[in-house]
């Protein structure tokens, strides 16, 4: 048994066990914590599979921001004393078991078949590697996101924005309370003072490095969003219903810059959404980073804006 096989097997077993613990049996809070741990281990698994980009996104968003979101929702549900549903009937469990086993079999068959079909080199990846050097971007993922599949990425940030608008509509125009109690913890100030500037620094580094090595707008915005969530929870940022022009601008700047750039190049005879140069890639990425980060933080805070709080 080689080390690589051992890694594959132990990560797979660990992930299955964590998913089982997160989903079935036990209290809901334990399930949520297990789900967060699942996200951390999944990040390690992405790293092991050879994708630092996915590992970064999974660590910051998949485990960090999602975990914080679900924990806070759990807390809110507890506060309104929501009625917990009863256990499902045995009949229903039986039917669900049959469906789940069939589903597992189907997915396993499809997955194994697709692995078996992988004979030659992947064609799309081959084309990508051939086309990449012309663009001046060294990181294939950034290349795909901004240059080759830019329409996908544009629609993606539009979807994130739409999710924010929809969430605001669902909660209505009122202040949503947040658990922000750790403000007076003596060490919290020190932690925030160290982590906040460092996170901003690392985010900017990721944005800039993302053109050539792993990193990029999504990973940077994931980190900034996680930082924002921490600042809200540490009581350094307060959610407010006051609408600020800057916040609104930051929300849409990613979509706006992307659209303007995509349309603007048509004036110079280029096709729609063409990217005129590497500077445009960095410009769009920076705008996207700001937009996604602020949207995720506002989704977390459930508010229209944020304001800083003095000590």
């Amino acid at each position: 048994m080689t080390w690589a096989l051992m890694m594959d097997v132990s990560l797979a077993i660990g992930l299955l066990f964590l998913a089982w613990q997160a989903l079935i049996g036990g209290s809901l809070l334990r399930g949520i914590i297990m789900f967060i741990v699942f996200g951390m281990v999944l990040a390690v698994a992405w790293a092991w599979l050879g994708s630092p980009d996915l590992a970064m996104a999974e660590a910051a968003i998949g485990a960090g921001v999602t975990g914080a979101l679900i924990l806070v929702a759990y807390w809110r549900l507890k506060r309104v004393n929501a009625v917990e549903p009863a256990d499902p009937s045995p009949l229903r469990s039986g039917v669900a078991l049959v469906v789940a086993v069939l589903g597992t079999g189907l997915v396993a068959a499809l997955g194994l078949a697709s692995v078996a079909a992988l004979e030659g080199e992947p064609v799309a990846g081959q084309l990508l590697n051939e086309a990449l050097p012309e663009t001046g971007i060294g990181n294939p993922i950034t290349g795909v996101l901004i240059i080759f599949r830019s329409l996908d990425t544009l629609l993606e940030i539009a979807v994130v924005l739409a999710a924010y608008v929809a969430a605001r509509a669902a909660l209505g125009k009122r202040q949503v309370d947040l658990p922000t109690p750790s403000r007076d913890a003596p060490l919290m100030t020190a932690l925030v003072t160290v982590i906040a500037p460092l996170a901003v620094l690392v985010a900017i580094y990721l944005l800039k490095a993302g053109g050539q090595i792993p990193g990029g707008a999504f990973q940077a915005s994931a980190l900034l969003a996680a930082l924002g969530v921490m600042l809200v929870l540490a009581g350094r940022l307060e959610s407010t219903l006051a609408v600020s022009l800057w916040v609104r601008l930051a929300l849409i700047v990613g979509t706006l810059v992307f659209c303007l750039m995509g349309l603007g190049v048509m004036l110079f005879g280029l096709p729609l959404l063409a990217i005129p140069g590497t500077w445009a890639v960095y410009l769009i990425e920076a705008a996207m980073m700001v937009s996604i980060a602020i949207t995720l933080v506002l989704l977390f805070a459930g508010s229209d804006g944020l304001k800083g709080v003095g000590r």
Binding site: M40, A47, P179, A185, M188
Partner: peptide, 24 residues
């Protein structure tokens, strides 16, 4: 860098959890 992100993440999760259990 992923390791660096994970350190920050663990701190954020703990802060969230502590906040929740205290506020409730």
């Amino acid at each position: 860098i992923v390791a660096l992100l994970l350190v920050m993440l663990a701190a954020i999760i703990t802060i969230t959890y502590a906040g929740i259990s205290r506020a409730s």
